[in-house]
Design a protein around this nucleic acid. Structure first.
Lengths: 168, 168
DNA sequence: TATTGTTATACTCTATAACTATA
DNA sequence: TATAGTTATAGAGTATAACAATA
């Protein structure tokens, strides 16, 4: 970090030779690959999210699970997993962890005892208020970082890529 | 899959009750979370990429490594890793795999024998032609899926998110 | 026989600490 | 002492097969 500053200073001293620092890397066609730029962008956003949510000891996927249950109380476990693109087999441990923390409750259906509906506990509902606040703060940081117009331009085409349809 | 078609047919039969299939899931604020939509979009794009590159037995990250080496022959291992956002410690095995397949060559610098420059082998260079073609076909599939305008709208704001600066 | 949820398992990705060889 | 690269390891994330309980 300090090294960059030193190099800048040096370049200012010996003005003419525009050789400031190591030669930049040529990304070739990489930045024309949607998958690559998408991946790097996702990692950058998750990094901020992750730091913001470390105080709650929650990962992005856990926030998405809790949010879906909050808005669809009683939805069968399998349908929650499916809606989030998580395989049911990997979803078992996720729900287990949230249940162990007393954030989520599982209730077997009386009509079909194979089905286990998911609900937030009181503690879970209370926590969601804080989580949504943290999430909104996080969104605003990203917005400030890239500018309002860039931020708002992203959602519509991204949903098209992700879900194959417009925002709806 | 067939189930959806059956439900559609049934809904068409008993026209009035607009109850076609299970009630849709409410995503709540999730689709207003840039990280969530970004993640789902990235997964969707990688899925197509992954299928397209399975014929070459290459993963997305490996394609990015080969492309960077192709455009920066001799670049030290650590700088390749850094440019791609990969930790040097995890990069060792990646390069090892590509070297074992005779796609990449490592050449110790004569000025500083700690540094190992990376180069494509002949075989690697030959392969890149096919890889770039597969990658371009993949891009065109995504473009067709979401439309030209949505596709082109994405790059500039995504680069801002990912790298903190405009396309440049 | 099909569906919901489960266990076991394996492979990839990512992160940290400690090491080597060079400088 | 600092840097480039390495090893070992542990934790997530993701994928498949096989199973129990229920319908």
């Amino acid at each position: 970090m300090d090294k960059v500053l030193k190099q800048r200073a040096k370049a200012t001293e010996c003005a003419p030779p525009r050789d400031a620092g190591p030669s930049p890397v040529d990304y070739g066609p990489l930045k024309q690959r949607l998958g690559y730029v998408l991946r790097r962008a996702q990692v950058a956003v998750f990094q901020d999210f992750f730091e913001a949510f470390s105080e709650h000891d929650l990962r992005p996927a856990q926030y998405s699970v809790l949010t879906l249950i909050e808005h669809n109380p009683g939805l069968p476990q399998g349908r929650v997993a499916e809606a989030l693109g998580i395989q049911k087999t990997n979803f078992v441990a996720m729900i287990g962890a949230l249940k162990d923390r007393d954030l989520v409750r599982r209730e077997p259906s009386k009509q079909d005892r194979r089905i286990h509906g998911l609900f937030l506990t009181r503690k879970g509902e209370t926590l969601m208020v804080k989580l949504h606040k943290s999430a909104q703060d996080h969104e605003m940081r990203i917005l400030k970082r890239i500018g309002e117009s860039a931020y708002h331009e992203l959602f519509s085409p991204l949903e098209l890529v992700a879900f194959g349809k417009d925002p709806g």
